[in-house]
Write a protein that binds this DNA or RNA. Structure first.
Lengths: 121, 121
DNA sequence: TGCAAACCTGCGAAGATATGCAGATAATGG
DNA sequence: CCATTATCTGCATATCTTCGCAGGTTTGCA
């Protein structure tokens, strides 16, 4: 059995699952703790249906855990460290070329990890 | 300008670029240094055309650098640390469920980072 | 009960990816 | 020059993703 191929496929599936702008922002949104669907949708200015669909995918891949309270569904990261690991990826991206001059990786990192209320989202 | 959306899009593009079993194995193959197209193709048992196409994509996203020597094209990781960062992702995957019983993340990591000659690829 | 709020799921069209094949380039060795 | 080796590029097809919309489920509350 080509175990190595299995690992690379699993890895690719995992990466595909998080490789979407909305889902990345959602993961970042859950960095500090659980949130319900409406809160996430409002924070990111996305239609709730879309957020729900993304969450269903993340749930299917066990990247988030669900907790129901009344009619609200609260989601949290299954691996709290995931958000930090994603931020580390910024070092591999030439963000400099695409943001305003003077910006660099550190500012991108700061921007990304800043609280929602402080950012120009 | 929604800088945060720009960052999330860049991040998603980067993740999509590496989210492919072949490309992951290629990155891993380049972990220890440069290799030419044929060597990579042979090591991974992939058609050279496909390897070349993948490399063209990675090149376009500046994830690999090219060096030509004669009729061989040698590629290396633009960010040598990339391979290690990818290996870190194994902690987020339930490899246990999909490999033979008794395997766990550490063995998956060992498998993944093992030299080609030591692995059942 | 009945209605509304908060989510979820199914479906289909549009768009993005993957991949083999044919043909094009570039360097090497007669 | 010509053939050969190593690699690249263009193209068509098959497959996967995304995303809105319509309709369904569960819970809270009057």
């Amino acid at each position: 059995m080509p175990s190595r191929m299995i690992v690379s496929r699993e890895l690719a599936d995992f990466l595909k699952m998080i490789a979407h702008p909305d889902r990345l922002r959602m993961i970042e949104e859950l960095r500090l703790g659980e949130k319900d669907v409406s809160s996430i949708a409002a924070a990111l200015s996305l239609p709730a249906t879309r957020v729900s669909q993304h969450l269903a995918q993340l749930r299917a891949h066990r990247l988030v855990d669900e907790r129901r309270a009344g009619r609200n569904h609260f989601y949290r990261l299954s691996h709290p460290h995931l958000a930090a690991w994603i931020v580390d990826a910024l070092q591999f991206i030439d963000v400099r070329n695409r943001l305003a001059e003077g910006d660099h990786i550190d500012s991108a990192r700061a921007l990304w990890t800043a609280q929602s209320r402080n950012t120009s989202h």
